[in-house]
Structure formats: C-alpha cells, structure tokens
Amino acid sequence: MRVGVLGLQGDFREHLTVLRSLGVDARDVRTKEQLQELDGLIIPGGESTTIAYLLEKMGMLSALRERGAQGFPIYGTCAGMILLARELNDPYPENRIGLMDITVKRNAYGRQLDSFEVDLQIKHIGEFHAVFIRAPKIVRVGSEVEILAEHDGVPVLVRQKNLLASSFHPELTGDPRVHKYFLEMVARG
C-alpha cells in the first residue's frame, strides 16, 4: 500500500512519520505525476490559502477532484479539511477540491490564543487526545456524511465514503489510531 502526504506546505513530516511507523510506504507528494502512483492521500495541516494556491498553480487541484470523485481515498486534517469542503463560510480559498458535503467556517474556534487540547470519544476508536490549532469548524454536514466524533456538539471528525476529514491534528500527538482507520479505508479501496 502506497500512501502520499501532500508536501506543498504544512506539517507533512509528522504525517509521514506516523504512516512510516505503521509500516506504510509513505511518500511526500508535490507534483501531479506523483499523484498517479498512490493508493490514498493525506492533506496535512498548514495554511489552506497557501496550499490551495500551490495546488492550483501546479495543476493538482482538478486532478485530485477527478480522482476523489472516482473513489480515491483522501484524508484532510485542518487545512486539508477546508480543501475537501464543498462550502465555506468565508471567501477564501476560492478554489478547493470541494467533494465533501460539509460547510466549514475557517478559524471559527478563534485565533491562536484559543487553540486547545481536549479528549474526544471517536466512533470505532474510543477515547482520543486531540489538538486543535486555529481550527476550522464544521457548521453543516450533508446526509451522506457520517459523524465519527464531536466536541461540544460540533462534528470534528467526519467521513463521506472515501473521504475523511478532521478539525484536529492526530499527527501531532503520536497516537496512530485515526491514521490506522484511514489506512483501512485505503485497503478497502
């Protein structure tokens, strides 16, 4: 199984470390050509405006949109979730992958001073310590979307078929269970 981590900007190294600790052939991906060689892709945390700008500039946005629509597994954390969202409560970034039927509000948990750690209950996983950094908030989920975890009544980990998205950063805590869950999605194709 070969899983890519989008390496345009953000904490891709942390995702690669978790994947490699699970014995996965994990690749840092920065071009359209590299996308073709993968069984799944993680879009890391970072600045969504920066990652969106680079994705579009390198012609990767439409490629990802096409593959994602055909069942290619993608997991977006934080900025990655913003890029997967169909709707935003915000004008930026205008161009996204946009395949997941959710509405996301950027920086809705506040600025850095409001960034936080908290324990979550995740379906199929159990208790999970989560880190939220200037996190985006899911303010609407479509009927096709399964909520896997909530915090304060707000969804924070959601799945729609081959797409997984979280407001928090499992790559920052060294607990690989959310990554394992995604790898099972990849294994089932």
Partner: peptide, 13 residues
Amino acid sequence: KVKSGLAEMLKGG
C-alpha cells in the same frame, strides 16, 4: 503543544 503546534503548521511556508 498548541504553541509549537502552530509553528509546525507554518512549516514549508
């Protein structure tokens, strides 16, 4: 964790 976490998100930028 959240302080250094934001810096992690800025990497490569």
